[in-house]
Simulated assay, not measured.
Amino acid sequence: MILFLIAAVPVFYLAMDSLISDLHGRIDDSYKPFAYGFICFVAALVIYNIIRLMFLTPVYTPSGIYIYYLLHDSLIPFALAVTGYLLVFGFTDFETGHHAVNRMFAFMCGFYCFWSINDLIINFGWYNNHLLLIIPIQRIGLIAAFSLLFSEALKRRGASRVLLYVLTGLLPFITAAGSMLWRLSYTIPMIGVTAGLPVLSGIFLYRKLRPVSEKPKVSLTSE
């Protein structure tokens, strides 16, 4: 299961990169967002571990467990990733949606790809199903959902754009709920929350990436 923790995000990156290449052709310099994500990961790792060591202490109540998982595993890494993305790319968009999705998922994969090494170090001797199985699935869900929602938000205007930004900001709260349900031994709801985000995001992301086939023209004249 340690292998799953280490390999889940890299395999997801390779699969998504291959999918976009198959659907739309190879994107030039598609590796650059991944490299930028990795650079931001190195900087964020220092900030994260300072915050973790100085401020994060688990409190064993339902609300305390939720807040701990929210900050420790979800919100702080996600906020650092999004901040890094905005510092590098801002709110710019490309002409076609699949370029924006490729840029976002590649950056986020580069950011999260090696976070598992940090997980293994800081949790040495305390490995469990949450760390080795649930967290990698949650990260895949975060990456897919962020790429879907944020790329769509860049194309919108007005209230719909704000709504998509709000939904993007709620993503770590959803993954933290899955962690809390695991800690409280609510297995079936935990599976639904944990698996639901990557599955639903993956379905809608594929629909977004899939080329729109031209409808056959209907002749109005009879032969």
Rank of each mutant, 00 (worst) to 15 (best):
I117H: 13
I65K: 00
I121R: 10
M190S: 11
F150S: 01
F111V: 10
L80D: 09
F41E: 04
G90T: 15
G158W: 10
S116L: 08
K217W: 14
V9T: 03
H24S: 10
C113L: 08
S160W: 06
L19Q: 10
S222E: 13
L148V: 01
R183Y: 06
R157T: 13
M104S: 14
F111K: 00
L197D: 02
I39P: 00
D28V: 00
F78M: 11
I50V: 15
L154H: 11
Y69W: 06
S219K: 11
R26C: 05
A153C: 11
A79G: 10
I51N: 01
G37D: 08
L181E: 11
F89R: 10
V46K: 00
I121Q: 14
D93Q: 14
S21W: 14
L154A: 12
R156T: 06
G158P: 03
I6N: 01
D29Q: 10
R157G: 02
G178H: 03
S222K: 15
A100W: 01
F146I: 06
A177P: 00
H99A: 02
P58Y: 09
V11H: 05
A44Q: 05
M180N: 04
E95W: 08
L164P: 01
V11P: 04
F78W: 09
S201I: 06
D28H: 07
G84T: 10
D93M: 14
A44D: 04
F41K: 01
